[in-house]
């Protein structure tokens, strides 16, 4: 089971939400969410790689810094440790369907930090093909514009509401 989030790690806030998030493989996790956005660092790319099952095998320093976790808490963990409950499941289904077909996926993503805050990214994920075989996935995130963040905040809220009906 993925490690539950801990109150002691949270950024101080008056807007704490607690919920149990279910993942594609049937696992669940207690997540704690505060309504705080951490700005994307200027000039940086957040880079990670996973194995074919979505287990993190590489994280660059920007990834570690923005996630709020230590590197050794991330390596070996499923990438969905970053999944924010405001993200519609359909977005991740589309991501995995696309990269599993061998294609590039791009989209706007709200990521959950260890401290319950979030950060928005424009993400690109591609399969790593070696000798004709997919050996993992590389994901690179860049800074999204504020206009796009606002647009996708509204869209995802609508999609999430539909999913929860």
């Amino acid at each position: 089971m993925m490690t539950d989030m801990n109150e002691a790690d949270l950024v101080p806030s008056t807007t704490l939400r607690e919920l149990r998030l279910g993942y594609f493989d049937g696992r669940t996790r207690r997540v704690l969410v505060v309504d705080e956005e951490v700005p994307y660092p200027d000039g940086k790319l957040i880079v990670s790689r996973t194995d074919p099952d979505g287990i993190i095998t590489h994280a660059n320093q920007a990834f570690v810094d923005m996630s709020g976790y230590e590197r050794d808490e991330l390596i070996g963990e499923n990438h969905c440790i970053l999944r924010h409950p405001d993200m519609p499941a359909a977005a991740f289904r589309d991501l995995w369907d696309t990269v599993s077909r061998g294609s590039k996926w791009q989209g706007y993503v709200k990521n959950l930090r260890k401290d319950g805050a979030h950060y928005w990214v424009f993400a690109t994920a591609i399969p790593n093909v070696r000798d004709g075989r997919v050996v993992g996935y590389t994901s690179v995130r860049r800074k999204p514009s504020r206009a796009k963040v606002n647009e996708y905040t509204a869209l995802y809220a609508q999609m999430r509401a539909e999913e929860l009906k």
Partner: peptide, 11 residues
């Protein structure tokens, strides 16, 4: 090299 090329591909 493959890693850097994958990275360039994402960009």
């Amino acid at each position: 090299t493959e890693f850097m090329i994958d990275l360039m591909d994402t960009l």
